[in-house]
């Protein structure tokens, strides 16, 4: 919401008269008669026109001039005698903020818009047009904002390569409680910036945190490697041991071998791995006692990708091994 408001403010300072004005304004010539002017006003339902000769604005004629003319009961005459000659004009390259100030200061309801160099008429600006124009530009600008977010979430579509993936790696230090959770916390922020869908971020955040905490609490440290690709986000976390004796048991909800000091801190419910499983589309836990544990988590984004991904090739490779 803040971003939107800021965007609207910006817009006032970005937009020029040319962006908002009505181009191709209805005009009259000085040699047309007041009767003709009356007909033109009726026909187009407008309350005034710039008076133009050789593309140059020579006057403004409005409904007020017509009323005065009719009230006086004079014979029909050319517009040139009733118009306001050499009216104030706006230049098309002026910023809207300034144009609006000019409206306020002068009290005029309409301005012809001319090209700064040629002084030729290029459009017209009235208070009504300003309101209408600004509203539609704002709607457009806000849509642009959405498009930006859309783009961020489709960064992979905008970058051309046969295989597109982003690897982010974090070191996890065993038993380092001060830094525990840091990798997952920064990862969540990264994914937000990349515009990944919130539900995917949410699931990855939970899985990543649980995995990171297990590595900190139960292992001698390891490496977390996130892979972000259009079709999936995966996390591989490998530690340097000591490994898990009984994987079956470790996967069971409620089973924990956490030490007392760990339990006191609120860990050891035996819910970490089950949480990971719940959040992941695919989870694979491998451990060799005495060597280390490797956990693979995959979450599919639902973005189908036509090009064959590196991941697919990798899985084929690893199957072949």
């Amino acid at each position: 919401m803040d971003a939107k408001q800021a965007r609207i403010q910006e817009l006032l300072y970005e937009l020029k008269v040319t962006d908002v004005m009505r181009a191709g304004a209805i005009t009259t010539r000085p040699d047309q008669t007041m009767t003709e002017f009356r007909r033109i006003m009726r026909k187009h339902r407008i309350s005034g026109t710039p008076v133009v000769e050789n593309d140059l604005v020579v006057g403004m004629i409005t409904i007020a001039d017509l009323i005065e003319f009719l009230a006086a009961g004079e014979a029909d005459c050319q517009i040139r005698f009733k118009m306001t000659p050499n009216p104030e004009c706006l230049c098309s390259d002026q910023f809207m903020v300034h144009a609006i100030r000019q409206f306020d200061a002068s009290g005029y309801g309409r301005y012809p818009v001319v090209d700064r160099q040629s002084r030729k008429l290029v459009g017209i600006l009235t208070k009504g047009i300003i309101i209408e124009g600004m509203l539609s530009k704002m709607a457009h600008a806000l849509k642009e904002e959405e498009i930006r977010q859309y783009r961020a979430s489709h960064i992979f579509e905008d970058i051309n390569a046969e295989y597109k993936e982003l690897y982010l790696t974090y070191e996890v230090v065993g038993k380092d409680f001060d830094r525990a959770g840091q990798a997952s916390t920064s990862m969540k922020r990264n994914l937000k910036r990349l515009g990944i869908q919130p539900d995917i971020i949410h699931r990855l955040a939970i899985a990543s945190y649980e995995a990171e905490m297990n590595t900190v609490l139960y292992s001698d440290g390891g490496v977390m490697e996130f892979r972000i690709a259009p079709e999936e986000i995966s996390l591989r976390i490998r530690d340097h041991g000591p490994g898990i004796e009984d994987i079956e048991k470790a996967m069971q909800p409620g089973w924990s071998a956490a030490a007392d000091w760990v339990r006191e801190l609120g860990f050891g419910a035996g819910m970490g791995i089950p949480n990971i499983k719940k959040c992941a589309d695919k989870m694979d836990l491998q451990s060799i006692p005495g060597v280390g544990t490797t956990l693979n988590i995959r979450i599919f984004t639902g973005n189908s990708d036509q090009t064959k991904s590196v991941q697919e090739r990798n899985t084929q490779d690893s199957r072949a091994k």
């Binding site: 945190y209 801190l265 609120g266 860990f267 050891g268 419910a269 970490g272 949480n275």
Partner: peptide, 8 residues
């Protein structure tokens, strides 16, 4: 008071 309970 169990963190993984909150997480889950």
């Amino acid at each position: 008071d169990m963190l993984s309970d909150v997480m889950g």
